[in-house]
């Protein structure tokens, strides 16, 4: 099992790194094509997870050719335009299907495998049992978000700017909190719109062995919104966890992390419902 870090603070080490590409990603940790030139790209995944509009297509084409030349380890994609253009341009970089909330069953993973996609990032809103079931029924690299605040929604609307415009207040911050009775959730605005972030830090360390047993190859840790010192300790815990920890040891590591920062099990142990009548 390998760790993939979604971080702007940790640029070295034995882990894989995941960056959003400036101009084509809604990620918090962005990198430009220029910056990529000086890096060991064999360890770098690039996320192209913006909803692509016609105006983006020419830069997308340029970026795909660049990433191909610089041989990044893989491309995480949201919009089908990335898949389509990659085929047309005969891009030789593994594509990773990362449609956030849509990666919820093995049959659709298999559909994308037939389309030439090499991996998929499992949705964070399904249970550990469902993840295991998906993994056992497919033959592609699976990535599981294992630690960090989770993305809840993406809007094209500038929902902070328009609010501050409405209340006639100036605003320089891109990060705010919206609260209601269930808690306090992050709101982040950038040029492409607004993202909503979970109230809790998700931490699935106790399930590492189940994921390993199910054949999951990659886990993703995201440090956004977490103090660097705390995240360094968390990363150390996960390094221990992926190297032959017993289930009891995993629970101990979970306790250790929770002493640093409160975390939750997210949807790993909680099924969502959809019929309320």
């Amino acid at each position: 099992m390998e760790i993939v870090l979604r971080s702007n603070n940790i640029w070295k080490g034995s882990h894989f790194l995941l960056f959003g590409l400036k101009g084509l990603s809604i990620d918090n940790n962005l990198i430009s094509l220029e910056e990529l030139k000086d890096m060991d790209t064999s360890k770098i995944y690039i996320s192209l997870d913006k909803n692509i509009f016609n105006d983006d297509l020419s830069f997308l084409e340029q970026a795909l050719l660049f990433l191909n030349d610089f041989k990044v380890r893989g491309i995480f994609f949201y919009d089908l335009a990335v898949l389509s253009l990659s085929k047309k341009l005969k891009i030789d970089i593994p594509l990773i299907w990362n449609q956030n909330f849509l990666v919820t069953n093995y049959r659709t993973c298999n559909y994308y495998k037939k389309e030439g996609v090499k991996g998929a990032v499992i949705s964070s809103e399904i249970t550990i049992d469902e993840i295991v079931n998906i993994s056992r029924n497919i033959d592609m690299d699976l990535f599981v978000n294992i630690f960090g605040f989770q993305l809840m929604a993406v809007s094209k609307r500038l929902l902070l700017s328009s609010y501050f415009d409405y209340v006639n207040e100036s605003n320089e911050d891109i990060y705010h909190y919206m609260s209601e009775k269930t808690g306090r959730y992050g709101v982040i605005e950038n040029d492409y719109g607004t993202k909503f972030i979970s109230k809790d830090i998700f931490n699935g360390i106790r399930y590492i062995n189940r994921l390993k047993d199910a054949g999951i190859k990659y886990i993703i840790l995201d440090d956004y919104g977490i103090d660097k010192d705390i995240f360094d300790n968390v990363l150390e815990c996960f390094n221990l966890a992926i190297n032959s920890s017993t289930d009891d040891e995993l629970l101990e590591l979970e306790r250790k992390i929770n002493c640093l920062v409160p975390t939750s099990l997210g949807f790993f142990d909680k099924k969502t419902i959809y019929k309320v009548k």
């Binding site: 909330f101 809103e125 809840m152 929604a153 809007s155 909503f196 969502t272």
Partner: peptide, 11 residues
Amino acid sequence: CYSGRCVLSNY
């Protein structure tokens, strides 16, 4: 939000 790219309800 973008249709399909919102799980506010889940959370």
